[in-house]
């Protein structure tokens, strides 16, 4: 279908983009367009103005910045997926990104766009929450940084204001950690029914640190803190992990839809968490 008419701008700098967002009250930011374009074409969204970020070079690329990795909002999934520094220091991101859509979508869709879109079934939000990433947001009053836990606020809803831009995401380094992303979906290209992002650091045979987050188990990604606490200090054995993973769905209220009801999702969360943690430990 054909989108409703809109005015189109393609600024070259972040400041210019912010200026446009200030001037046009009904504006939408366009990144890779993999979520926004379908919404426009179905006329589910019909903004007056589109501000395309494609020409803003400062939003692109992956940088190593000492203790953290910095991923520009406009970095396409395909670049993130093949980045050696991401693979070395935040392998969970590489693994999850590889499951997003298909190669065409990964070449157009962006890291920041996916996070800003905040679809509960998307893959990267849970990863960002698991890894305690921080989100750098630029707005009329300058820049601010928001933790992943605070960034995601609801279904398609984030800490971003209407006149703000997500500029980059800062991810602490998890060098040497094992990681696994367990995505459960019906066909290869579909969104997840439930997903689990897990990273663990081993100390000998036992788990020294663990990060586990669940996707699509609520309106925002859920950090499985009960699982993390149960894992830390324990052995990375099947039994110990199974016991810890049994708590994965504690306190969650997932949706019921064609793919399953809340009970099924809670059950899946425990199974997938067990598998994700064991697999992560196996690669540590």
């Amino acid at each position: 279908m054909i989108p409703a008419p809109f005015e189109y701008f393609a600024p070259a700098t972040i400041d210019e983009a912010l200026g446009l967002l200030r001037e046009h009250s009904d504006a939408k930011v366009l990144a890779g367009g993999q979520s926004l374009m379908p919404a426009l074409r179905l006329r589910l969204a019909a903004p007056d103005t589109i501000v395309d970020l494609a020409k803003i070079d400062e939003l692109r690329g992956v940088r190593d910045d000492g203790d953290v990795l910095v991923i520009g909002a406009m970095t396409p999934h395909s670049v993130v997926q093949s980045s050696p520094v991401v693979n070395e220091h935040a392998r969970l991101i590489s693994l999850a990104t590889a499951t997003v859509g298909d190669p065409q979508i990964r070449h157009r869709g962006t890291f920041g766009g996916s996070l800003a879109h905040a679809d509960p079934a998307a893959d990267l939000p849970a990863v960002a929450v698991a890894l305690d990433a921080s989100f750098v947001i630029a707005g009329p009053d300058g820049r601010r940084t928001v933790s992943a836990a605070d960034f995601f606020q609801g279904v398609f809803s984030t800490a971003l204001g209407e006149d703000e831009l997500l500029v980059e995401v800062r991810v602490p380094k998890y060098t040497g950690w094992g990681a696994h992303y367990e995505k459960f979906n019906r066909v290869a290209q579909a969104w997840s029914i439930v997903s689990v992002a897990a990273a663990v650091r081993l100390d000998g045979d036992s788990i020294a640190e663990a990060r586990v987050a669940l996707g699509n188990m609520g309106s925002t990604p859920v950090r499985a803190t009960a699982v993390e606490q149960a894992l830390v200090g324990g052995p990375a054995t099947a039994d110990a992990v199974r016991e810890a993973a049994a708590r994965a769905a504690d306190g969650t209220s997932p949706v019921t839809d064609l793919n399953g009801d809340a009970d099924y999702r809670r059950h899946l969360a425990t199974v997938l968490t067990r598998r994700a943690v064991l697999a992560a430990a196996g690669t540590a």
């Binding site: 179905l42 298909d102 019906r186 066909v187 290869a188 290209q189 579909a190 969104w191 064609l258």
Partner: peptide, 16 residues
Amino acid sequence: LITGSFDQYLLPGAPD
């Protein structure tokens, strides 16, 4: 129709 797009009306692809 709830399954009004290929997002909901699932068709298998070669990988499936």
